[in-house]
């Protein structure tokens, strides 16, 4: 990893409007959780369903998309990435440095709020909050890596990412049992299930399979992103 690239990426990522967008969405989520806690008759199962749907189902894919693509796509679009690439620095190092920033950002703005929202809604004792926090963390890491790869591999990363997040994760992943094995949301839920009190949440993927898939997809996406960055071409404007 390269500290210069980490600092540059963090400044680019959090310097502009993106910061307010992420912060706003996270606060909205927390406000919603607080309101439901105060004014709605919510049981524990209602609360876990809400957190699963809003956090793992929407917040994390969305944040992963914003942050994962935001870590490199603007630079590729305007060509300034050439100042990183024309250096004696391994392209894999560049990818890993950018990914660190993306993961930390997703964890800060999505996983931590998920944990806090869970504490607000169900309290901290049953392990549910910790479980969701951990689930959100791994989901955030996987989404960041996948969307960073997508941003390097295609200029239409945001469109593909939205299609994936909306169609695959929420529709297909939610209803087609076979597809659930390949749903990041289900992997995260499996992690949550293993930490939370028995019966609080149920995932359709076993913990073993989920952990293997999480590690494999994270590692493969990171490695392949580096490979794609090695052969990134900057075609002339002629």
């Amino acid at each position: 990893m390269n500290n210069t690239i980490i600092r540059l990426t963090a400044r680019a990522m959090l310097g502009g409007r993106r910061l307010y967008l992420l912060l706003g969405l996270a606060l909205l989520f927390l406000a919603l959780a607080t309101l439901l806690r105060l004014f709605a008759e919510f049981g524990t199962s209602d609360a876990t369903e809400f957190i699963q749907a809003v956090s793992l189902g929407a917040l994390l894919p969305l944040f992963g998309l914003i942050v994962g693509t935001g870590a490199i796509a603007p630079e590729i679009d305007d060509g300034s990435v050439v100042y990183l690439l024309a250096k004696p620095v391994s392209r894999h190092t560049i990818v890993r440095s950018k990914l660190v920033v993306a993961v930390i950002t997703t964890v800060t703005f999505a996983a931590v709020p998920t944990f806090l929202a869970s504490v607000i809604m169900v309290g901290g004792s049953s392990g549910i909050a910790l479980g969701f926090g951990a689930g959100a963390l791994v989901a955030g890491a996987v989404y960041s890596a996948v969307f960073l790869l997508l941003a390097i591999a295609t200029r239409q990363a945001v469109i593909f990412g939205l299609v994936y997040a909306l169609l695959w994760e929420s529709v297909v992943g939610g209803f087609v049992p076979g597809a659930q094995v390949l749903s990041v949301q289900q992997w995260a839920l499996s992690v949550t299930e293993s930490i939370a009190s028995p019966g609080a949440v149920s995932a359709n993927v076993s913990l073993g399979a989920a952990l293997v898939l999480i590690v494999a997809v994270f590692a493969a996406a990171t490695w392949y992103a580096g490979e794609r960055l090695r052969v990134l071409t900057l075609a002339g404007e002629e």
Binding site: L8, R11, A12, G15, G16, D78, G79, S80, V82, Y83, G236, E237
Partner: peptide, 8 residues
């Protein structure tokens, strides 16, 4: 040739 640098 492109002008874009890290403007910030």
């Amino acid at each position: 040739e492109r002008e874009a640098v890290y403007d910030f």
